[in-house]
Design a protein around this nucleic acid. Structure first.
Lengths: 182, 182
DNA sequence: TAAGATTGAAGTGTCAATCTTT
DNA sequence: AAAGATTGACACTTCAATCTTA
């Protein structure tokens, strides 16, 4: 990978802003939600997912699919929500292998309380700062990027040289920036 | 928080794209970097930060500040990088409390190798999908949001009702979405 | 006391192995 | 076998407590 163009100043500016948003925004949203409702963002997503399912009930695997979490994380999350009375878990009568997570009335009430809190947070942290034109413009740009994000081939273009040193990778995000070293 | 306007369709679209980018892009960048160079994004950021410091050397606290990581994470990260020969750590002669992390020649070489890999990854994952006009437009919008992100007051607007239930919060990101329940 | 750094405990999340049912 | 779910082990990260030096 010998010849790479550095980012242009305009690219640099966009990248900086995006990386900052990527790092900061989720924490702010999570914190807003948790302080006011006692639900983490992950929990909110989980019960919201259940609330939209038929009968407010989902197989564990489908719930995991819906939230984008792993099956094991989903198991632990649902167990915790159950211990707080927001969700129940029972074996499926149709298929003995499946467990069904179902939103309780309290869970639904909690969600109804949390939704406006969350939307207000999203507006205050993000949309309050930009007008309608900007929303449409940025929407077009980011939609394109988001759509192509995962179907871009995983293998980097150049020669995959240093494939040797490799440790296990899980979880968390970076927030890397661009300009070259000295 | 009784009256909250749901997001408009245009807002919804932007929000969806942004949340998807927030979740997916960091993992892709991290994975690209790790596969090709053996450095995680966090490690890359750390050594890049050192590379830009006078004498390629920084107090632990300043390094933590520069990378945005906690002091304890920085300690563990530097210890690990040291065990791989990319960084050294020594006590400061000026202040007995301070430790100085310094990039080694190998660390610098590694960074020089990794930089083009990373920039290529950023281009391929992001900038290749948008043209110059879009870069400028999105840049303007996101720069404004990013700038105001943290100086927006932390306290939610409405009555802080459910302040009771609260557990410890650390680490990780959500990727919450917007529309209301049933 | 306070600042700098490290260590210990804990939360979030993943993968690999396991157990049960089909 | 294969699918569904859980458990165990571990990586990443932070907060709180601690240790050392100023």
């Amino acid at each position: 990978m010998p010849n790479v163009e550095p980012l242009t100043p305009a690219e640099e500016a966009l990248w900086w802003a995006l990386m900052r948003i990527v790092v900061t925004l989720p924490r702010l949203l999570d914190s807003d939600l948790l302080c006011t409702t006692g639900l983490s963002a992950t929990e909110y997503t989980t019960i919201k997912c259940l609330s939209e399912a038929p009968n407010r009930e989902l197989r564990m695997a489908d719930l995991a699919e819906g939230t984008g979490l792993s099956a094991s994380r989903t198991t632990r999350l649902v167990d915790d929500l159950q211990s707080r009375g927001l969700v129940t878990k029972r074996a499926s009568s149709a298929d003995g292998r499946s467990n069904l997570a179902k939103l309780t009335a309290e869970g639904m009430a909690k969600l109804k309380f949390a939704w406006p809190v969350h939307v207000a947070s999203v507006r205050r942290r993000f949309f309050d700062h930009i007008d309608g034109t900007a929303v449409r413009r940025a929407g077009h740009v980011l939609t394109v990027v988001a759509a192509r994000l995962e179907d871009t081939p995983a293998a980097p273009p150049g020669t995959p040289s240093a494939t040797s040193e490799l440790r296990a990778r899980r979880g968390s995000p970076p927030w890397v920036s661009a300009p070259p070293p000295l």
